[in-house]
Amino acid sequence: MSDPGIIRFDQVSKFYGEVLGVNQVDLSIGPGITGLVGPNGSGKSTLMNLMTGLLQPTEGRVTVLGVATDRPEQLFRMVGYCAQYDAFPPGLTCYQFIYSYLRVHGYADGDAERLTWSSIDRVGLSDAGRRRLAGFSKGMRQRARVAQAIAHEPQVLVLDEPLNGLDPMARAEVTDIFKEMAAEGRFILISSHILHEVDVLADRVALLDSGYVVAEGEIDEVRVEMEARPIQVLVRCERAKEVASALLLQDHLVEVLINDDGGGFLARTKNSGHFYEQLQDIVLREQVKVRKVKVADSDVRAVYQYLIEDEGKA
């Protein structure tokens, strides 16, 4: 049932032919900042495109504050979407870009001009407002797209990887804008494949993997699970069995798998700092030649695998 107070995904699935986009997503999103996190190809953009009517669900229903997504004339009075595509209509200045689409919204000249400059100021592009977008740096283009998405003061703001390409200063500025807008009671949905990025921004988070929502809730709950998980370190060295045996004397080591070729091993440890110290001691003491030490699960996919496994065990 459509609820005018929330964004609702009701058993939503999207298939591209035989390829799964998202599957049976049941999700309710309230006011504040919600992070949508997942590795590339996990279905974040599909979910956002479904929410903004750019895609129609194969099954299920999406409503935004009670409005169905196949009613653009109502939906986009409330929704602004900064999509992932780094492209603009050719030949336009930043001002023309935002102003022109506000005219398509139906704003009269004066209102459109006022709203355009207001959004340009807000993202810190006032000096570059009359310049052509084609000459913008990646970070400026990203800010121009954010400005276009917020120009009509939407109640719901959907941002697909909005911090991509921004330098630390710009990140801080743009992040502040999102926080200000959330504080005004708006709904903000931000996607990212970097968990840490969402960590500092979002109140709630939904984790996606392979088209499924694998976890959702307050960010603190997810973080606790993250801290408890062991990390995997790949070591390529001589006399791998000897080194692994020496390491196994440590409490923090969960398991060690020796490579088939005997030229290395994969260790799972709960204390990475201690692990590296011990490894260094052994290597120096035994005069072992090490070719490679690599953290095997620093990417976010490993986090989801861990979460899925953990859920399965529970």
Binding site: L54, E73, L75, V79, A87, Y101, G106
Partner: peptide, 13 residues
Amino acid sequence: ERSLHYYLLTPIR
């Protein structure tokens, strides 16, 4: 040009 979505994200029928 990957710019059609700007139109489709406006409240126009």
